[in-house]
């Protein structure tokens, strides 16, 4: 179980582990059109993001709705072109890959989506759904494909396999649907798995089951996983590092325990306050939350993007100058002027 990784282990591993994916100063901007043609600015969904993921490492990207998490992931999945910046996978720059290279890349990256029902074509049987990536991936031999489907379904515990092969998605429960999505993501035996809020649409009682499944697969196949969520409480079971994202930027990067036990960025602190644990006392107190809503990504605030909502704002600095990353403790990066 990867559950709560010991800080020391990670330290040791990190030195030897190879970098799988490295993102450098990534920008993803969407052009806004006025009346369908005139230029009306950009939605700066991802605005200067840098990080590395190592072999068999799991990281979590946490942030509010609309902060750019999915845009970041879809760019990594080569569904969007970066506006600026580099994505390097296995020492190959994505922007330099030709069609064949892109095919190769896609077969090495698995994608688990948020809404399991929407992620499965309603008119395809489970078998067909799982066969598709294999066909697209050029596996010509039907026998071989069926074999791999069986293997993938066994791995996600959709057993007995034959009971499920001919079913349509609507005949499955939410948890089973998500298992099919995971099986599809795993079927090409990827090196990197991108899971975009894989459990947020599921019933609370099956969330843990799915997360445990993902974490078992990660261990077994030495997968690198990017896990996107807005729910910090599930992160500590699953990831080694957390990146906190706010308005297109990563504002804090550290190991899970560091973030949970010693959050540095005021926004991270707010996220932790917002996360509930089952406790009857909760009903008696109001939560101290940052006022307002996340800023527009078209005209984000100057300086620190969190400053209009931040209770610790340093007037004259935070609202003027964009905070660089500081490292107040080893391996714990935070983009906030409080730590300069």
């Amino acid at each position: 179980m990867v559950a709560v990784p010991q800080a020391k282990d990670i330290e040791n591993k990190e030195n030897t582990r190879k970098t799988v994916l490295s993102i450098d100063d990534l920008h993803v901007w969407f052009e806004l059109k006025r009346f369908g043609f005139g230029h009306a600015g950009y939605v700066k969904a991802v605005d200067g993001v840098t990080f590395d993921i190592h072999e068999s490492e799991t990281i979590a990207v946490v942030g509010e709705s609309g902060c750019g998490k999915s845009s970041l992931m879809k760019t990594i999945l080569a569904l969007y072109k970066p506006t600026k910046g580099k994505i390097v996978f296995d020492n190959k720059d994505l922007s330099e890959l030709d069609n064949k290279g892109l095919h190769w890349y896609r077969s090495h990256v698995g994608y688990v989506q948020q809404d399991p029902y929407g992620a499965l074509a309603p008119f395809m049987t489970v078998q067909r759904i799982l066969e598709e990536p294999l066909i697209v991936g050029g596996i010509k031999d039907k026998e071989n494909r069926i074999q791999r489907i069986h293997k993938a379904m066994e791995e996600v515990k959709l057993t007995p396999v034959n009971d499920f092969l001919q079913k349509f998605p609507h005949m499955l429960s939410g948890g089973q649907q998500q298992r099919v999505v995971i099986a599809r993501a795993m079927i090409m035996e990827p090196k990197l798995l991108v899971a975009d809020e894989p459990v947020s649409m599921l019933d609370a009682s099956v969330r843990v089951e799915i997360l445990k499944l993902l974490s078992n697969l990660q261990e077994k196949h030495n997968l690198s996983v990017i896990y996107i969520t807005h729910d910090l409480s599930t992160v500590s079971y699953f990831s080694e590092r957390i990146f906190v994202m706010y308005a297109g930027n990563l504002v804090e990067k550290a190991k899970v325990r560091q973030v949970v036990d010693n959050p540095l960025h005021p926004y991270t602190m707010a996220l932790l306050t917002g996360t509930s644990e089952p406790d009857a006392k909760n009903a008696e107190t109001f939560k101290e939350l940052p006022p307002g809503e996340p800023p527009s990504l078209v005209n984000p605030p100057t300086g620190c993007r969190f400053h209009p909502r931040c209770s610790k704002v340093i007037k004259g600095l935070c609202d003027v100058k964009f905070p660089p990353e500081f490292e107040p403790e080893p391996g714990h990066l935070v983009a906030c002027w409080l730590y300069q």
Partner: peptide, 11 residues
């Protein structure tokens, strides 16, 4: 999303 998934695996 199923079409997004199909694009992601290269259809």
């Amino acid at each position: 999303s199923y079409i997004e998934a199909a694009r992601a695996y290269g259809a």
